[in-house]
Design a protein around this nucleic acid. Sequence first.
DNA 1: AAACTGACCAACCGCTCTAGA
DNA 2: GTCTAGAGCGGTTGGTCAGTT
Length: 307
Amino acid sequence: MGRSPCCDEIGVKKGPWTPEEDKKLIDFVARNGHGSWRNLPKLAGLNRCGKSCRLRWTNYLRPDIKRGKFSEEEESAIIKLHSVLGNRWSKIASHFPGRTDNEIKNFWNTHLRKKLLQMGIDPNTHKPRTDLNHLLNNSQLFNGIANYLNNDHLMLQAELVKLQLLQNLCQLLNPTTPSQALPGTPLDRLQNPNSNPSRASFSTQNPNSSQLQAGFTSGFMSGSGFEYEDKNKAKMEEMENLDYVQVENYYPILPPLTSESETNPLGCSTNSNSPSSSSSIFDSLESLMNEDEPSESYWNNLLRSTI
DNA sequence: AAACTGACCAACCGCTCTAGA
DNA sequence: GTCTAGAGCGGTTGGTCAGTT
């Protein structure tokens, strides 16, 4: 399997391209096009392999290349597309005219990956990082509870609350699984402040719920992880043909926080009537974890609602 | 001023896919 | 059906540069 590299010729130059080489390549392609990349270097007077010429042209010299910083719109669209398409950079790049797969790949690896990690989202699965070490050791929420309750009995109770919080956070974040918060538990009250059966963040009343569901099962926060190869292939193919703007319809919308009266101590919106109330839990958790010194009233408020 | 570190990104490597002989 | 060349793709490397010690 495989084939010998095309660039194994002795004496073929490697490394950064000089302006002179760029000019030769641009001039040649402008005059003749690029029929055969293998023959191009000789014809163009370049001491490079054809593959190197092709990469230089497609990633850098092409006249329709769009260079410069990625806009916020492009950034969020890349994240959304990656949650659906995975590391298929060329597919992702096809949604951004003028951007190359290499550029998007680099941008992902240097910026977006880190950004998602900082938000507590696994960049590979686009699911919240659920490993206990991350949650329990790095979460100021849980550490705050543990510090606040500095005696054995209450510590045990806090441990139970932690587990309940974990279970129910997972449930909040992953509504496709049938289990719910246990009735009467702190998180049940958190999820269900008014005992409204239609309280679920992704309620069936949500006009976008079927599309959102499609988004979930296609990748983002799906119950069993990133499994687009196995599931919903037809949906995947449909997604690949969408303009990136349309992907919004398949991706959960994370709304801005509503007014203070509509948020519980975790900062989660509880207004079930609004379609945009699907979830702001990432924002909430992010702000929680970013908060350097949560105030005493903050923790009092939290504990009153959870214990 | 020098050494070190980390971010960025162009370019390379090796593999797979596709089309044509 | 098999082989091969060409092209495409994703992962990785290494050079450059700015910021920090």
